[in-house]
Design a protein around this nucleic acid. Structure first.
Lengths: 203, 203, 203, 203
DNA sequence: AATGAATGAGCGTTCATTCAT
DNA sequence: AATGAATGAACGCTCATTCAT
C-alpha cells in the first residue's frame, strides 16, 4: 500500500528545510495526503522537484516529516498553554477552548494525518505517541484538581479524558465539511458542563 | 482535484451490481479512498476491470456509489433500531450502544468517506445529508423525552445532540488507529452519564 | 497498420443492410474514417453494435463496404448524366458542373476514402478502379468531340483529362476546410475556358 | 472529437526537439495522422514515450507542431524559390515545377494534414493560413506580369490562381495512391499551357 | 548543493470482439 | 436473427525517481 520509504541519505538543509516543511503542511491541508505531489510542493515552495528529493528522499518521507513537525508543534503549544494556568478547572477550560478554536486548516491536516496513519505503520505509531502527548496536559490538570480536592471524578480519569478529547476531535468533521469558521462558541458550554459533571467539580 | 465523473450510460447489473458494491466497500475500508483502484476491486470481486467500468462508468462513480450505499444502509439500520424502543432514554441508550459498537471496518470506511468528502463537493453534499439523517433519531428521541416530561435539557437540544454524535465519532480514531475491536464498553458509562446530565434526565 | 479484416460469414441483411450503409456513410463523412466507431454507427442507425458485426464482420469491413457503395453510386450517377447530352462540349460542361456542384458531404467522404486508401491496399485498389471509372465519361466525351471534328486537342487526351479531374478534385480542399457551400460558380468559367483551350474546341 | 490539447509546460529540447519533429513527420507520412501513436514516434526516434510527452505535452500537440513545422518549411522554400526569378512567367513556371516535383512523402503528409484539419478547428485555421501563404508567391508573380504588361489575364487573378493551385493539389491523389514517383513531366505542359492561356501571356 | 532532463511503472479509459441467450 | 453482457488489448497520461551536469 504505502510507497517505499527511501533509504537515501537526506541532506541537512537547515533553515531552508524548515521553510519548505511549512509549505508542505499548507499544500497537505489543501490537497490532502495522497494528492500532494512533489510538483505541488515544488511550485508552492519555489524549489525544484529534485531539490525536494535531495532534502527528504522520497515523497512519503517528505509528507511524514511535515506531518510530524506540524502535529508536534501543536502538541507543544498545548503543553505551554497549560502551564499558564494554576487553577485546575481554569486550566482545563483553557485547553478545551484552545482545542475548539483550532483553525480549520489544522483540523484538515490532522484529518489527513489520521487517515494516512490508518494505512501506514510508522505513521500510526507516531499518531499514538502524539495522542498520548496530547492527552497528557488534560490528565495532568485533572490529577491536580483531584489532589487539591476540587475534583471528585465520577469515572476513571483516563476514560474521562479520552471521552473529552474524542468529543473535541469529533467536532472536527462538521467543521471541516461545512466550512464553518470554528467549532468554538456553539458547543463550549455543553462540553464544559458535561466535563464539570463528570469530574464532580465544585466549580 | 477530484477526477471527472463519467456521464456514460451505466449498465444495470442487478444483483451482481450489489454484490460487487459490497466488495468495493471492503476494499475501500482496507486500502482507503484514493488508493482503491479498479484493479483492486476487480481482483476482490472476480470480474474484469472493464466490466466494472461497464457497470459504474468511472472509478470515482464506483467509489461514490459504494460509499453512499454503505452509509445509507448504516443510517437506515439506526432508524430501524430506534423504532424498537418506546422509552426515550432506553431508545437513546440503544442508539449510543449501537454507535459505539459499530465495527471497525465501518468506521474506517466512514473516515475515508469524510476525508474524501473534504476534497469533493458532491461527496461533501452527500455527507451533509447523511449527517442530518444520522442525527435525526437522536433528536427525535430527545424530543419525545422532553414532551413526556422525563427530560429537562440544560442546553439547546440541537447542540446537545451534535456534541453527543461528535463524541461517538471522535472515539472512532483511537479505535481505527489502535486496531481495537470496539469502542463500546470502556466509554459507554461516561458518555451515557454525561448525556443524562445534559438532558436533566430523571432516569 | 490496418485492422484485420474478418473472415466471419456475413449475414445477408437485404434492405436493412442498405439502409444501415447509408447511415455509415453519413457518420463517416462527419467523424472521418478512423474515428468512426461501431458505437457511432449503432447510435445513428438504431441497431445494436453486435448486430452490425453480424452484418459486416469487422469494423474495417463495414467501413470499406460503405465507402465502396457510396463512391460507386457517385460514379454511376455521373455516367448516367453524361448519357443525357449529345453534343460533346455540352456533355463535358455538364460533367464539370456536376463535379463542381458535388455536395460538401460527399467531398468529405471522398477525402476520407482517399486518405484511408493510402494506408490500405484493398482500399487503394478500389480507389484506382473508381478513378478509372470516373475518368471514363470524360474521356468518352472528348473522343466523341475529336471524332466529330469539333475538338482538336493540343495535348494527349489522357493527360488532359487527368488534369481536368485533378483540378476539380483539388477544389475539394478549400471547400471542405472553409465550409463553403459549393465550389461551383466561382471557378466554373476558368475551368471550362482552360478546358476549351486545351481541347482546341471550336465552341 | 479532437483530443484535448495539453496546457502543460513543454520542455525546451532545442536541437533534439527539431530532430524528433523530423521523425514525427516521417512517421506521420507513413502511418497517417490518427494512427500515429507515441509508441511509434518513440521507436522511430529512439527516445522514451514519456520523453516525448515531456517535450510536447500531448500526442495532439506533438502532431500539430510537426505538421506546422513541415508545412511552414515547404511554404518558405517556395517563397525563396520565387525570389530567384525576375521574369514573371519564368517565376510562375518555376513555382509550378516545384509544386509538381514535390516528393510523395510530402504530399502524403499534406493529405494527412488536410484530412485531420477537417476535424479540428485549430488545425483548420492553420491550414487556412498556410494556403494563403502558399498562394502568395503565385499571386505576386501574376501581378508583376500584369504590371509589366506581359500578362493580360482573361479572369479574376485570385480565381485563376486558386484553380492553378487546385490543379497541382489535385494531382496529389493519383500520385499518392499509385505510388508514382512524381507528377512532374506528364502534366507540366498541360498545366503551363492552360495557365499561359488564362493569363493571356505573351510568352 | 541544486537542478533539468530523461525515463519507466502504473492507472484510467476506450473500443472491438466473443459469447450466451 | 438480434442482442446485451463481459472482456482483453492498446493507448494516453501522470508522476516519482534516476542521472548527469
Amino acid at each position: 500500500m504505502s510507497e517505499r520509504r527511501s533509504t537515501r541519505p537526506r541532506r541537512a538543509g537547515g533553515a531552508r528545510r524548515a521553510q519548505i516543511l511549512d509549505r508542505v503542511v499548507e499544500v497537505l491541508s489543501e490537497r490532502g495526503y495522497v494528492a500532494t505531489r512533489f510538483a505541488d510542493v515544488a511550485q508552492a515552495s519555489g524549489v525544484a522537484v529534485s531539490t525536494l528529493q535531495g532534502y527528504f528522499g522520497s515523497r512519503e518521507d517528505m509528507l511524514v516529516e511535515a506531518l510530524q513537525r506540524a502535529t508536534s508543534k501543536e502538541v507543544e503549544a498545548l503543553a505551554e498553554l497549560a502551564a499558564g494556568f494554576e487553577d485546575p478547572w481554569q486550566r482545563l477550560a483553557a485547553l478545551v477552548d484552545r482545542g475548539l478554536s483550532t483553525p480549520v486548516k489544522t483540523w484538515r491536516l490532522l484529518m489527513e494525518f489520521w487517515t494516512a496513519a490508518a494505512h501506514d505503520d510508522e505513521l500510526r505509531a507516531h499518531a499514538g505517541e502524539l495522542a498520548e502527548q496530547y492527552r497528557r496536559p488534560f490528565v495532568e490538570a485533572v490529577r491536580r484538581g483531584v489532589d487539591s480536592g476540587s475534583f471528585s471524578p465520577r469515572f476513571d480519569v483516563a476514560a474521562l479524558v479520552d471521552v473529552l478529547v474524542a468529543t473535541m476531535d469529533g467536532l472536527l468533521y462538521p467543521l471541516v465539511l461545512d466550512h464553518r469558521a470554528s467549532a468554538g462558541p456553539d458547543y463550549r458550554d455543553v462540553v464544559l458542563a458535561q466535563l464539570a459533571f463528570a469530574l464532580g467539580s465544585d466549580t
